[in-house]
Simulated assay, not measured.
Amino acid sequence: MALPRAAEKLSHGQPNFYIEKGKVFAQYWHDHHRDGRSAVMVKTSGPEEQAMLVEADPDLYYRPAYIGHSGWIAIRTDRSHADWDHIADRVRMSWHLAAPARLVGMGPE
């Protein structure tokens, strides 16, 4: 929420984080469709980065249903070794990919 123009709203019972005009940059899923996982969904630069992340650490990353085909990646948060600094970095990167150009140079408000 410290990112410029960030806001939160529920969608399908799960929190979504977006920038003005509804550009979603992160989602939180807990037991989505009873899959038993908790994860943060973030944008990647595209399918190549998505595939690289899943291949590098399939215990941490997976291609989420519905939005994975658009290059989004899921980062598991239900593991005891969850690296919250890494997750925060990925959320910031996702914000940068979704943000309008006029906001990208802004620091946290």
Score class of each variant (00 low, 15 high):
E48N: 13
D89F: 00
R92V: 11
W95D: 03
D35C: 01
V40C: 06
V91K: 08
W95R: 10
Y62W: 14
R79L: 12
V54D: 03
R79Y: 06
S70H: 10
W84C: 01
I73T: 08
H96S: 06
S80I: 05
S94C: 10
I67A: 07
Y66A: 12
H30G: 15
H96Q: 12
E49D: 05
M93H: 11
I75F: 05
L60H: 02
R63A: 10
V42Y: 09
S70T: 02
W72V: 12
D89L: 03
A88L: 05
S70A: 07
A88Y: 00
A88D: 10
H81N: 15
H69L: 07
D31R: 07
P47Q: 14
I67G: 02
Y62C: 09
Q50A: 05
W72Y: 09
E49N: 09
A65P: 11
H32C: 10
R63N: 14
A39M: 03
H81F: 08
I87S: 12
P58Q: 07
K43R: 15
R63P: 08
S80G: 15
S70D: 02
G68Y: 02
H33K: 13
E49S: 09
D57C: 04
D59Y: 03
H69E: 05
K43C: 02
R34H: 14
T77E: 03
